[in-house]
Design a protein around this nucleic acid. Structure first.
Length: 224
DNA sequence: GACCAGGCACATC
DNA sequence: GATGTGCATGGT
């Protein structure tokens, strides 16, 4: 918690995707799922262009996406990069939802975090980070999202070692934090904020808000 | 022009 | 099981 508070004090509340129980998010659950897939290894500004194209084309619904052919879809999401693979991944995701839940994305999401996560991970193109992002940000269920920033910041500050994998980093946080959706939501956003500003690949951290933690500017210079 | 961005699946050893 | 590779646009 001390780590979170240090980050929060520096960056303030980040206001990422609202948790699903908030009213505003109800109509945006699908958009959050689509965004989670489109943002794979991609800057968010590019994802926003693609989301804008989908909205403008009236394609931001399970039915429309299920019906659209893959070529048309990849054209719309072109700005997000990897558009051919992401079109396949989106179609896989939509097909999995549509097959069992029809248009009802809320029903698809409204299951236990564990069940939903397993279901998501069985979809080709949805890996652990994407699944966790959907569980946390679209479904509003408690699961800690680990991304490249999280791993890099933790490695630099010796909270993990180079041998730690996704699940062990996730466990580190889930075992030491209260299970709170809003906390997990903002903590992940804080990692992105500090990672972008102070912890870039092959660059030394300076004036880092985590100075109270051990810090090795060289750690992870190659791997993260 | 090089590097980076909120990964993932698949081939190969 | 570990390691390497393809996928691609747009900002700095």
């Amino acid at each position: 918690m001390a780590m979170y508070e240090a980050l929060r004090a520096r960056f303030g509340h980040q206001g990422w995707w609202p948790v699903a129980r908030d009213l505003e998010a109800r109509g945006r659950a699908l958009e959050i799922c689509v965004g989670a897939i489109l943002t794979q290894n991609t800057a968010w500004s590019n994802v926003e262009r693609a989301l804008g194209n989908l909205r403008a084309a009236g394609a931001m619904s399970v039915g429309a996406l299920a019906q659209m052919d893959r070529g048309a879809l990849s054209g719309l999401i072109r700005p997000a990069g990897y558009f051919n693979v992401k079109a396949k991944r989106l179609k896989n995701f939509i097909a999995a939802v549509h097959r069992d839940w029809g248009e009802d994305i809320e029903a698809f999401l409204d299951r236990s975090a564990g069940t939903l996560r397993e279901d998501l991970l069985s979809i080709n193109g949805v890996g652990r980070e994407t699944a966790d992002s959907i569980v946390l940000y679209a479904a509003g269920k408690c699961t800690f999202v680990v991304d490249a920033y999280t791993a890099r910041v933790c490695l630099r500050h010796r909270l993990i070692g180079p041998e730690d994998d996704y699940e062990s980093i996730k466990d580190l946080f889930e075992l030491s934090l209260p299970a709170d959706v809003e906390l997990y939501n903002d903590f992940h956003a804080q990692f992105v904020a500090v990672g972008k500003r102070y912890c870039r690949p092959r660059a030394k951290c300076e004036d880092c808000p985590l100075e109270h933690l051990p810090h090795d500017a060289q750690a992870g210079m190659e791997d993260y």
